[in-house]
Structure formats: C-alpha cells, structure tokens
Amino acid sequence: MTKTDQKLLLGLLIIGLLALAGHRFYFQSQTQSNQVIIKAKGEVVQTLTLRAGEPLQRLTIEGKKGQAIVETKGLKVRMLEAPCPDQICVQQGWIDSPRQTIICVPNEIVIYIDAEASLDGITG
C-alpha cells in the first residue's frame, strides 16, 4: 500500500464512521405506535399501525418472485420468509424504529416504518 492508499483508507473510514454515528441518532428511537408501510413491486400493499404489546401477526405479501411472509409483534416487524435466493431481508431481522427499512431486491418488497405517522401519544 502506498501512502496515498493509506490516506484514502483513512478518509473512507472516517466518512463511514461519521455516517454511522449520524445513523445511530437518526434511525434509533422509540415510539408509542409505528406506522409500517409495505410495498411490493413499487405499490403500497399494506399499511399497519403497530402498538406496543400487540400479539404476533403474520401477513402474506405477493412479491415479484413469490409469496413472502411478514411478521409483526408489538412495535416490531420483520421478514419471516422470502422466496429470494440471498435471504438478506430475512437475515436482517426485526426493525422497530421510524425510518428503518427492510428491502428485498429480488422479490421487490420494501418494508419501512414511516416517521411522520408514528405517534408518541394521542390527546383527546
């Protein structure tokens, strides 16, 4: 490695770490209710309002490659089963904070928690 290589490595590492630090602040928070949006092939197919303590719930979503199973429990949501070869979406596990996202590229399914609609409380 040349000196310039090393500088590049350092630069990339620093940028990456800064992005990571920002990420921790931006994508980790807690809510009273989570608005989960599920898109398949570019269309919204499900919106769910999750509240703390809600029981386990499973949904079948039709993706490009076939049926995927999405599981929710309390405020969390995950891809339980997917027909894609890489299984990245399944390995990613639960998401529970606004803005967190699960993307299954081969099956063209996107699950994310909408930050605007997730409420901390309701007055009335």
């Binding site: 928070s29 997730s118 409420l119 409380g121 309701i122």
Partner: peptide
C-alpha cells in the same frame, strides 16, 4: 426532545 432534533409527535383525536 424525543431524540436529537426529533420532536415528539402527538396526535389530536377526531371528536
């Protein structure tokens, strides 16, 4: 704040 630069979101119920 709820988190850095993130306010709390409170909904007003429809009567």
């Amino acid at each position: 704040e709820k988190a850095k630069r993130q306010p709390w979101k409170i909904g007003i119920q429809d009567p």
